[in-house]
Structure formats: structure tokens, C-alpha cells
Amino acid sequence: ALNRGDKVRIKRTESYWYGDVGTVASVEKSGILYPVIVRFDRVNYNGFSGSASGVNTNNFAENELELVQAAA
């Protein structure tokens, strides 16, 4: 299972961040479909780089994520 702070690569092909590595911000335990919230260094097309207006978190299912580096 994934944990907060883990570095993960995104495998959801239609995602803006496909192939990117993000950090797990939190994992919901309530049984929702996309329980893993991942935070990225770059914002998506809703904002400009360096601006706070873009979105830099997204929810994924565990099977859409590949663990790159476990949290220390």
C-alpha cells in the first residue's frame, strides 16, 4: 500500500501528469474510488508555472500509480 510522502509515477494515460512523478499527500481509507491524493511540482494547464492558480494535486487509484521511492 502507498503511504504519505511516497514518490509515485503516474500511469493513467489520459492524465496531464502521465509519466510524471508526484508525492503522495494523503491516502483516504473510506473506500472511495480514487483514494490517493498526489501532489506535483508543476501545475496543470489551469494555471501558469509559478502561479497559485493552477491545480497541482489530483486523486488517483492505487493501480494507476507506480512506487518510485518509499517515504523515509
Rank of each mutant, 00 (worst) to 15 (best):
A1L: 13
A1E: 11
N3H: 13
R4N: 08
R4T: 12
G5M: 01
D6C: 05
D6L: 02
D6Q: 02
D6K: 02
D6S: 03
K7G: 00
K7A: 05
V8G: 01
I10M: 01
K11T: 10
K11C: 10
R12I: 04
R12G: 02
R12V: 08
T13W: 08
T13M: 14
E14K: 05
S15F: 03
S15H: 02
W17C: 03
Y18K: 02
G19A: 05
G19W: 05
G19Q: 10
G19L: 12
D20Y: 09
D20W: 07
D20S: 07
D20T: 07
V21E: 04
G22W: 05
G22V: 03
G22N: 01
V24A: 00
A25M: 15
A25S: 10
A25K: 08
S26H: 15
V27T: 04
E28W: 05
E28D: 14
E28A: 11
E28P: 05
K29F: 07
G31Q: 13
G31N: 15
G31R: 03
G31E: 13
L33V: 08
Y34G: 04
Y34C: 08
I37M: 13
I37G: 03
I37S: 09
R39F: 13
F40C: 02
F40D: 00
F40W: 01
D41T: 09
R42F: 06
R42L: 05
V43P: 15
N44C: 15
N44G: 05
Y45L: 15
G47I: 08
G47F: 07
G47P: 15
F48T: 15
F48Q: 14
S49W: 10
S49F: 09
S49Y: 11
G50S: 08
A52I: 09
S53Y: 10
S53K: 07
V55T: 13
N56S: 08
T57Q: 12
N58R: 06
N59K: 07
F60E: 01
A61G: 09
A61S: 10
N63H: 14
N63D: 10
N63M: 07
E64H: 02
E64G: 01
E64F: 03
E64W: 02
E66G: 02
E66A: 04
L67K: 05
V68G: 01
A70C: 09
A70D: 08
A72V: 13
